[in-house]
Design a binder for these strands. Structure first.
Lengths: 193, 193
DNA sequence: ATAGCTCTTGAATGATCATTCAAATAAGGC
DNA sequence: GCCTTATTTGAATGATCATTCAAGAGCTAT
């Protein structure tokens, strides 16, 4: 036996960044070798192939984003404030122009979900989990009296996620921070109405 | 002199479909040769290179989508009905699962706007034009008394476009037609409130 | 009809791609 | 401390990539 020398999380985060900067198809194994510090053979030994590395990176990305989400919400006094802080965070990422602050899941959905069944399955499941996390946030917001209308928490969660996907796409075509920020504020109003 | 033998619009629509099915980077010149019926040399003679073909295809795509949009709205009795029909059309495209019914502009924004300045400029301008078209729709809807709140037509247009981008991304991860349809209906309510 | 130009053809080019492999290296079980 | 087994290394592989180019073909103007 022999254990791997590299730090798996660090390698996956490096791969994440590489994929976010160039997209999956434009990121070459040479790029990944440089980003991760791993030789081609090691990458194939540990992750099967390039797509395997992407799938592993997506898994790590989801874990990282989830802990980040928990941190943001636990710093706020209630669910509504949490939502506001969460959206504020996303707006900041959109406006930063930094490719490594974009959403790897969303990039993968747009680039490869359509043509790769395995990636489609992983991304679909991750999206469903994201929905269920956000649904609980809206359940709590309802209990705290911050939702006026009668929409189901599930539907609010779906509208929020659609809004976030849309915001990220829109912000690549229209970079004005004030515009992005205003759309996000309206989104918060609409999903809490 | 000698005029080109191929039908430019037909070639661009064939290229559009190829790019929508595989994305820009995964579509090889061989794919484009097969899709368009043009030999590599002819493509380079007419469009400079692969990216030039994409930019030309994006231009044609925008023209085609615009005439389609005009047709949808002119078939309806007022702006609000037009919006409803327009969104219904988009929902049908999302649910179809047909790659050639996806949005080439959105795919390009997500795949190459980040890394290619020229594409970014074209896509940004097209997005702004889309906004201004939709703004006029909301101006009309306001005059017809179908908007209750006080939001500016510009902001409504931006929220609508964000919602459409989001819907298209979301629908690749969550394919349930009822869910997509419900989100779209809520979107219409929110932007007309 | 012919000259002159442009488009078409499709093989050739060199670069780059993902992947493989055999040798070298190192860790754990006994 | 050796033996087994796994990982690391990095050059090699063959495929595929975008692009070029020289030769052939056809339109147009004269």
């Amino acid at each position: 036996m022999r254990s791997a020398e590299f730090n798996r999380e660090a390698v996956l985060r490096a791969a994440m960044n590489a994929f976010m900067e160039k997209g999956f198809n434009k990121t070459s194994m040479q790029d990944l070798k440089q980003a991760t510090g791993l030789h081609p053979g090691s990458i194939y030994c540990a992750f099967e192939n390039k797509k395997g590395l992407l799938l592993a990176a997506l898994e790590q990305y989801n874990l990282d984003r989830n802990t980040e989400l928990q941190a943001i919400f636990s710093n706020e006094k209630d669910a509504k404030s949490g939502l506001s802080a969460y959206l504020g965070n996303i707006v900041a990422e959109c406006v930063s122009g930094d490719p490594t602050q974009s959403c790897l899941s969303q990039k993968a959905i747009n680039e490869i979900a359509q043509t790769d069944e395995q990636a489609q399955a992983v991304l679909s499941q991750q999206c469903v989990m994201w929905q269920s996390v956000m649904r609980e946030v809206f359940v709590q917001a309802g209990e705290e009296g911050d939702l006026s209308g009668a929409r189901l928490p599930e539907q609010r969660a779906q509208s929020l996620i659609v809004g976030i996907y849309g915001l990220r796409t829109f912000s690549q075509a229209q970079k004005d921070p004030d515009v992005i920020s205003a759309i996000a504020e309206q989104l918060l109003i609409d999903v809490c109405r």
